[in-house]
Design a binder for these strands. Sequence first.
DNA 1: GTCTATAAATAGATAGAC
DNA 2: GTCTATCTATTTATAGAC
Lengths: 211, 211
Amino acid sequence: MIRTEETTVTRMAGDERRLQILRVAERLFSQKGFRGTTTKEIAQAAGVSEAMVFRHFATKSELYAAIIDQKACQGNLPEPSCVALEARERKDDYAVFYELTLLALNEHEQNPEFMRLLLHSALENHELSQMFFERFVVTIYESLGSYIAERQRDGVFRQMDPRIVVRAFVGMMIHHSLNNSLWDKERRLLNISNEEAAHSFAEILLRGVTI
Amino acid sequence: MIRTEETTVTRMAGDERRLQILRVAERLFSQKGFRGTTTKEIAQAAGVSEAMVFRHFATKSELYAAIIDQKACQGNLPEPSCVALEARERKDDYAVFYELTLLALNEHEQNPEFMRLLLHSALENHELSQMFFERFVVTIYESLGSYIAERQRDGVFRQMDPRIVVRAFVGMMIHHSLNNSLWDKERRLLNISNEEAAHSFAEILLRGVTI
DNA sequence: GTCTATAAATAGATAGAC
DNA sequence: GTCTATCTATTTATAGAC
């Protein structure tokens, strides 16, 4: 076996290859779902043999788990409690909602694979879907909910269950992203920039909950 | 071949059997998706042999198409333009949004299979997903959008793109249903009645768009 | 680390008896 | 109308050479 500089050129290092397979699989799984994607397709798209896929991941399920784990657990997503922190401290309500929405919409637009993957795993009752829910959604509800409660105590927002407000707000932006990436890719129904959407949603919600 | 009363007791009539297979398949497809459900499973769940499934539906795809077609096309869904018609004529804005939301949430709760099926077909890029979009979603945007435009002309609603308002409003209710049936079945995050949700969403939106 | 070849299991679909 | 048996293709996963 020759160990020279060249080996790293012609052959990929183990970790590198592993990551490459992971990325290819993520794209395919997000497009066609877990059961709809074959290991052969993944291997072909990655330019390796099927055996190589199984060398890096013992089973197809393990590969799937590694993807969700990487995306949902390893800090690839911004910590919800840290978003719009400065606006929160200024108690600039509009900025809080606007910045949060814009960040989410941009993220969804740049990385629609992840949303599709999450939907697939939710529909397939994958355990890691629940994990994402615990790890991320619950955090958003706590973080944004506590801000809303604070503004209620300030006498600025109407008295109502803060979690309902979060549900309404998150609904606007998630549904907008979902709609854009699943049903209306050509933006036939509504073609607006993320900035405009963020502005409109923030304004509707803000007027909706302000006294 | 014996044709007596008894034959109808021991053996199902063709159409009846067809409908039964259709219903069983709908449940399984909604649970595990098109590719995740085998014809063998469908046959077993319906209590017939696989050959019987293929007698009624030439291919698995044809079976899937028949389900979506039946659900999305054959008037099993209320015509969006007819919902809350009376409230619309009274120009009772709150009632319009409240009734529309309550109807949708109840429908989603009683029949979560259809929403799951739609999501699956959207993720799998099934042509019938697009058909549903044309047939149903577009209608809602036109119907509700024109009501909003009317109320803007009345000087009651703020000037903004009516379609954005529809997007925000539909988002609240769809996301609420989606959340309840996909991620938070135990209602750990937010456990409210459909009436309460409809009330809150209608109020937030109404205050959000009223001058 | 990577390949080819192949085993083992499962999928959709059909044939033909009753 | 319904069944059993079976065919063919595909899919996951492994063995073993290089």
